[in-house]
Design a protein around this nucleic acid. Structure first.
Lengths: 217, 217
DNA sequence: CCTATTTTGTCGGCTGGATTACAGTTTTTT
DNA sequence: AAAAAACTGTAATCCAGCCGACAAAATAGG
């Protein structure tokens, strides 16, 4: 998928400043002015909206190497539609709109790549919609854990992916539109089944092949 | 949102050929080669995938003025991930990949607009995900009818939107991930309520304000 | 115009998963 | 180290909405 080149990263570094957000900190939130985009150097970020009755609904999780806050800036929308929060200690480059747009003009290959990036994200979002329709909760959870592991973990020699996912059940529930208690039982089910290695409050390994058995295709 | 200029349309006409598809005809389908994009001149098109057990799941509906088949071409994917079917009698321009990419190079403003288009679509898809999590079936149905009316209907002097939506309940069910029978009762409920005007098998008018009362925000 | 096919209405039964409730556990704060 | 706060496990209850079944209506096709 999308990979930034060294040259592009160098350019980015010049026009941006690096900020570190501790776990739980809000990076931007709904209806703020959308004057900048961000590039994640390390850590996980959740994109979500808070509903009128106070619940959170997440529509995506972003990983190191991802841009966030792009959609509003590229659509020329003034206000953020979603909020972003650090799920970890996160290190981020903040890039002002004008600088970013200038970069797009000066580096046409980057601009081309950005079309591909947005296109990839659209396909990803459509697949999420598809998965929501097709899969009951276990399936959605399996898909989520699988993608999180693939993007945040290291493949080891056997086909188990080693990770260190410190995510609360509440957070998982928000992403797949479910209740915390349901996640609790399901995680233990997946653990028994050997689909995931789940120690204390941390997921430390997932077995993709076993997990996939839970997913409706 | 995205609007094509006369100049762009003229260019498109030169590099494309027009095809008419009767209702029900498949325009492209999953795992075919993705060598072209399409521009809808008239009619509605559903983007969907057929599941292993034969059901259809729709992830979007596209309207006149929309491109379809873009994501695979822009992501440089070889095979279609979704299928497209004419929901009406549809008139479409078919534009070959090479011609389209050439157009992107020759018309940089168009290329810029395309980024905005993909960005709009991503936001739209994210909102769909949000709505799926937040809304029970009535809400999703209300949202669907509202967007269909807004995009395929004409606003009349009062705030009722006049449309002519000949869509089966089955098709609506596929889009919101529900069962046909449920749609049947809900449509009649919305009709009684005055949210929609529903005669025979056709939706001929919707009242946005009343419909919105069914939607969780 | 008659027949075959597709679409719609309706109605119980059944169930996945939300909700409520509370106790136990781990982490953070003081 | 104690107290507070945040997170997790489990169990009982309840209901939105899926499913199956079938009759009625509309459309299409010959």
């Amino acid at each position: 998928m999308f990979q930034i080149t060294d040259g592009e990263l160098k350019y980015l570094n010049e026009i941006s400043s690096e900020i570190k957000y501790p776990k739980g900190q809000i990076i931007f939130s709904t209806s703020q002015k959308a004057n900048e985009v961000y590039y994640i150097k390390s850590g996980l970020v959740k994109i979500y909206r808070t509903t009128s009755d106070g619940r959170q609904v997440s529509v995506a999780i972003r990983y190191p190497g991802d841009f966030i806050g792009l959609a509003e800036v590229l659509s020329n929308i003034n206000e953020r539609e979603y909020s972003a929060e650090a799920m970890d200690n996160v290190s981020i480059l903040i890039i002002w709109k004008d600088g970013f747009k200038k970069m797009l003009c000066e580096m046409p290959e980057f601009s081309e790549k950005l079309i591909r990036l947005m296109s990839d994200r659209l396909r990803e979002a459509q697949n999420t919609i598809y998965d929501f329709i097709m899969n009951p909760i276990q399936g959605r959870l399996a898909i989520l854990l699988l993608t999180m592991a693939e993007r945040a973990g290291d493949k080891s020699e056997d086909d188990i992916i080693r990770v260190r996912l410190r995510v609360t059940q509440e957070e998982l529930a928000c992403v797949i539109g479910s209740a915390r208690q349901t996640i609790s039982s399901l995680l233990n089910l997946l653990k028994e089944d050997g689909s995931i290695q789940y120690e204390g409050r941390e997921i430390v390994g997932v077995n993709p092949n076993k997990l996939k058995l839970w997913i409706q295709e």
